[in-house]
Every structure is written in C-alpha cells, then in structure tokens.
C-alpha cells in the first residue's frame, strides 16, 4: 500500500466530503499512508459554504479509496477533475509585540508569550468552532494545547492550525 517514490501531487483527482473535518482527517490518513495530497476548495457546484477537498493523483484512486474505507473516513465521491477548485491561502505573517508574538495565517491569528510559549489569544474567523478553540487553547502552552486541526471542524480551524504550527516552529526554534 502507499505511494513510495512519488513526492508530488500531479493531480487530476479530487476527493470531496460532507464536511471539513472529514477532509482534514482524510489528508492525515493519506499522508500517513505515503500518498502526496493537498487540501483545496472543491469546484463551486460542490460547495455548500465551508468546504474542503483533497487533491490526489488520479492514478492512485483505487488505493486511496481503499485506504479511506479501511480507516473509516467518509467521503462523498472522487472526481476525475480539479477544474474550478481553488487553493487555500498560504500567506503567514508575524507581528512582534515585544513580550508577545502574533502569527497570522489567512484570516486567523494566534498570539503567544515569547518567554513561556503560553497562548494568550486567538482571533479572526467566523465559524462556530473558533470561539470554542479559543476557550480550549488560550492560557495553555503551545506544546500542550490541542491542535486546531484535531479539535476543529472548519476552514477557519484549518487556518488557525497553520498559525499554530508556525508559532510552534518559532517557539521550538528559539528554545
């Protein structure tokens, strides 16, 4: 099983899901299985408002379908096209507030104290899991806080996860 030897997503295939959390879970399972995949917005006709798909190499469709079923990851269908799909924002910015650092990924921001690595705030976004993640993450150390991609369900959570990962990288690099 897997995709040993291949290191890029040639694309051509797109797995679509009923909700974002399933797509995030699928990405994790497929990467662990050795597949190169990428999260992306489905084409407009498959969007309901807060959607995420996984781009795959279409030639690997059979193995991917089997792995997702084995791991009990539910998906709606696998399309043989990525036409109309859109890329997620990958821009990450950092703002230095002296004792604190704020990392911004897409529309989501995470601030932590430099000396302790404690998350002091999260902001941005408009989906219901963002206030929930705020409550679960704030006042915890970066190394001990829950990962937004594991606790959240939406695209906002995914962007917050990117800010969190960047903050963790900065924190680990400085200690």
């Amino acid at each position: 099983m897997g995709n040993n030897g291949k290191k890029s997503v040639d694309g051509g295939g797109l797995v679509i899901f009923e909700d974002v959390s399933q797509a995030i879970q699928a990405e994790k399972v497929l990467r662990a299985g050795g597949y190169e995949v990428k999260l992306i917005a489905p084409p407009p006709k498959y969007r309901m408002g807060c959607d995420l798909g996984v781009v795959i190499n279409l030639v690997e469709k059979a193995g991917i379908e089997r792995l997702l079923k084995e791991k009990d990851v539910h998906f709606m269908k696998i399309l043989s096209t990525t036409e109309g799909a859109a890329e997620l924002i990958s821009v990450v910015k950092t703002t230095d507030y002296g004792k604190w650092l704020m990392i911004k990924a897409g529309n989501m921001k995470l601030a932590f104290e430099k000396a302790t690595g404690i998350i002091v705030n999260t902001s941005g976004g408009g989906c219901p899991d963002i206030p929930y993640l705020h409550a679960e993450m704030v006042d915890k150390k970066l190394t001990e806080a829950p990962k937004p991609s594991e606790l959240g369900y939406t695209l906002c959570a995914l962007m917050l996860d990117r800010a969190y990962e960047e903050a963790l990288t900065v924190w680990n690099g400085g200690n």
Binding site: G49, D51, L155
Partner: peptide
C-alpha cells in the same frame, strides 16, 4: 466562497 480561499494578491 470563504476567507480561506482569497486570491493571494488580494490577501
């Protein structure tokens, strides 16, 4: 269709 998908030049 969501702020996570804004074109990079706009973001």
């Amino acid at each position: 269709t969501h702020p996570a998908y804004i074109a990079h030049h706009l973001f």
